[in-house]
Design a protein around this nucleic acid. Sequence first.
DNA 1: CTGTTAGCGCTTTCAG
DNA 2: CTGAAAGCGCTAACAG
Lengths: 332, 332
Amino acid sequence: MDIRKVAAKARVSTATVSRTINRSDAVTPATAAKVWSAIRELNYHPNTHARTLSSGKSHILGLIISDITNPFFPDLVKAFESIAIERHYETIVTNTEYNPERMALCVHRLLDRRVDGIAIMTSEMEPGLVDEVQRAGVPIVTLDTGRPAKRFSNIKVDYSGGIRQAIQHLVGLHHDRLAFIRGPQRLKSAQVRYNAYARVAKENHLTTSGGLIADGEHSIEGGFTAMLNLLPQKPTAVLASNDLSAIGALQALHHKKLNVPGDISIVGFDDITFSRHTQPELTTVRIPRTEVARLAFEALMSTPASENGKEWNVSTELVIRMSTGQCPRTRS
Amino acid sequence: MDIRKVAAKARVSTATVSRTINRSDAVTPATAAKVWSAIRELNYHPNTHARTLSSGKSHILGLIISDITNPFFPDLVKAFESIAIERHYETIVTNTEYNPERMALCVHRLLDRRVDGIAIMTSEMEPGLVDEVQRAGVPIVTLDTGRPAKRFSNIKVDYSGGIRQAIQHLVGLHHDRLAFIRGPQRLKSAQVRYNAYARVAKENHLTTSGGLIADGEHSIEGGFTAMLNLLPQKPTAVLASNDLSAIGALQALHHKKLNVPGDISIVGFDDITFSRHTQPELTTVRIPRTEVARLAFEALMSTPASENGKEWNVSTELVIRMSTGQCPRTRS
DNA sequence: CTGTTAGCGCTTTCAG
DNA sequence: CTGAAAGCGCTAACAG
């Protein structure tokens, strides 16, 4: 079942069949109709590999993430795939498992498959790999990594703005001892969040003594421990670098029979699905992942083979739920 | 950069290069060495599409799931991909979004990409589609759907056994009013769980009056509502068809200021990651998803082009955590 | 507007 | 054990 059979049945050349499949407008509606009906009758499906081979475009996109098991990613992946499907692209998703070697492997596999673009959503990236992709002539888009260059775009999330939204919310509730649970400082996105906390806290004349900073490793367990370490410093509110560690903090407080937000307020970052279901529901800074996915796709599509990419900005949104309230000391 | 350049550099024919790449043992170690070094020097990567076109094997597998956003799936997907990579297969993951039309679309897209096998892990399946895949000559494996047939394998999870484990655990704790939160009855896997509950409860001479059954839709919200509806019937323990609805039940009880397991015991099903982090930690029946992924891959690999598939069994495991305890009425 | 034809890069007989 | 050559199924000039 190949294009020749269709051509024969429709009594045209294979070129014409190819043209009508590709919706070239250089085909008379009449002949196109003949071809389509032949296609239907024979239940013909073009061979994508043959297509790729001769056209040079695979219509496959690569999406690299850290770990599909991390609740940050599923929404992103889902959104990216939906958009891709809509635009008739297939997507291959690969996990780096936070491992640089594995990241290199992912990139190479995608390059071998001759993908038409690679979206790297891991907030870490070896510059060497970007080069390689660029040399391969494949558009690439990353999350918070580097500046636009040849075929290279970047999506920039306004983490600082998000932290500022959170702190202002807390300050508005009269909190004055604001602790921070950091993420792994080797992650650029975690660094940025921490720096923003330090800066904005200072702007608001809040103490940021060492005791108010703890490391939460961006995990529930880490957040739990971090919160326990923070407790002796009597913070009135705690800002976590991501939702997972905020959830850990929530559990630690529950464990210590402290009330949230009665005794302490908690704010997360990311707005993973589960944040809506914690006890109490978590106030958090949302990263609009659907939007990120959309921009990533757009960036890949809009980067003509030889042009420079651009920088795409996305801003965060404070989602106020039940884990934040008036500072206990200032309540009537 | 193609196979010809390599052949030229190594001073052999393209056939020989092809053979050494494919590790045919019809190549002298000496010539193979020459070829490999040429490959390395030129940094040659075979074009997978050309390969697929002429060999007929794409080395791509399709993995169809309902929704990557459902916490049941990420582990499964991750495990499947790791195994696939290890064995040098690429995998394309697609979401049906619980929609039959979309499922058909997924299957067709995969067939168009000439995948070497399709794993459908959705616990729902149109028989028509299976036929189509079979006719296309592509091995297929499903989860709890139908009996083995030509190139068609099935993985059978022992849901009944799981329900039995849960009920026996509860009976051992002297519970006698055991409620059940059902899943959507159009899902075969949910039906099986419900039927098993009814049967095993009866075997143990427990009441299963209508009031002890509620619909939880396999979601947190659904579980919440279901639990509220169950409360007037004063169950001493509740078994949920999946963890999400068990988590909803937990929240409902918390909301009503009831203690788990002091007042009521709760058991979930699946053992999603988050079950370890609920308050209290959820006792649940684990479906070993890594094992399921492994078997699915194995099933696809071990189905020679024209042979019948087989049935692969996987059993569940009761994970006892903190949400179950002695029946309150029978405590000293 | 349609047909002819030369590849795309690799695998695979078939000879030798 | 190695090479020559015929495709795999499609696209893209180039003619007409």
